[in-house]
C-alpha cells in the first residue's frame, strides 16, 4: 500500500495555506507601517510607563 495523503484531493485546498500567508503579509505590512510612522513623543511616553513613580511616599 502506498502512502497517500488522504485529504490532498479536495479541490482548492491550497487556498487555505495561501490565504493564511497573504493575510499575514498584509497584516505585517500594516503594523510595520504604523510602527515606522508612529509619533516619537507617544513612543517615548509608552516606553517609560513602567519606570514612572509608583507611589507617593
Amino acid at each position: 500500500m502506498k502512502f497517500i495523503n488522504y485529504l490532498e484531493g479536495i479541490t482548492g485546498i491550497s487556498i487555505y495555506p495561501m490565504t493564511s500567508l497573504l493575510l499575514f503579509v498584509v497584516f505585517f505590512v500594516l503594523v510595520a507601517l504604523w510602527v515606522i510612522r508612529a509619533d516619537n513623543g507617544l513612543i517615548d511616553h509608552m516606553k517609560n510607563m513602567p519606570l514612572e513613580k509608583d507611589s507617593i511616599d
Binding site: 499575514f24 497584516f27 505585517f28 503594523v31 510595520a32 504604523w34 510602527v35 515606522i36 508612529a38 513612543i43 517615548d44 509608552m46 516606553k47 517609560n48 513602567p50 519606570l51
Partner: peptide
C-alpha cells in the same frame, strides 16, 4: 514590565515590541 523595572531603564525598542506582539500572536 519587570526587566525595565529591575534594570531601571526603558525597554530597548518600543517599536520592536509592537511588531513583536502582533506578529507573535498572529
Amino acid at each position: 514590565y519587570f526587566v525595565p523595572k529591575a534594570a531601571n531603564r526603558p525597554v530597548y525598542s518600543y517599536r520592536l515590541s509592537i511588531v513583536h506582539f502582533w506578529s507573535l500572536i498572529f
